[in-house]
Design a protein around this nucleic acid. Sequence first.
DNA 1: TTAATTCATTGCAATATTACGATTAATATT
DNA 2: AATATTAATCGTAATATTGCAATGAATTAA
Lengths: 110, 110
Amino acid sequence: MGLTKTEMFTDKQNEIALFSKVFGHPARVAILQHLFKIDSCVCGDLVNEIGLAQPTISQHLKELKHLGLIKGNVEGTSVCYCINPENWTKMKDTMLQFLNQDVSNKEDCC
Amino acid sequence: MGLTKTEMFTDKQNEIALFSKVFGHPARVAILQHLFKIDSCVCGDLVNEIGLAQPTISQHLKELKHLGLIKGNVEGTSVCYCINPENWTKMKDTMLQFLNQDVSNKEDCC
DNA sequence: TTAATTCATTGCAATATTACGATTAATATT
DNA sequence: AATATTAATCGTAATATTGCAATGAATTAA
């Protein structure tokens, strides 16, 4: 059907899925990596840095902003984007709980 | 267009996106968490555990298997699924590199 | 052999995502 | 004011994803 049944899962599971979903596109991964690499904030150079059209980048930025992973500040005609460190850390904690599940006793199963 | 332009990104960026994409659905998160929780392997109880139809679960398992995160062993009429610990660890390393980017100098930007 | 069980596959409908041209909104420059 | 610059939004086309009923394949039980 194309409609994810979020109501049958826990809040945590849905949260992990939402964060993962936003990382599920290489353009958004690239945007975030670039924002980390460039210490100072970056505006629409992302359009040049990544090879996608301006509306496409703008759309990806919107999703990242919606999840709180980046902040955007208007500076004249351009907009300065950067990582939101608090929310990045919170996201990381959630994801690490999921990724760090104990793998040690899974060796001889199946 | 709906067609992700993977060729304009690095292998690493695409890899991160692929792993993230598979975690981008709560059913797959729930399946993985259940496989971690149940030390011994689990077969089609996943259909009961999670509330989705058998073909749907089967499809999610297929994607997890395709990325190498789980293994499946036929045992009679049922199939036993479990975490693939080696690949899980490899995936974790890749994801951690991405998640652990330094956030410390992002405080006063924008 | 026949029936039952378990799971994969197929086919399809509904919805979501990706990408971009065209346009709009906001500010800056002249 | 008129123009330029930058980025958001709208509209739309192409493709992907999700979910399940129906079916098929493989094994086991009778």
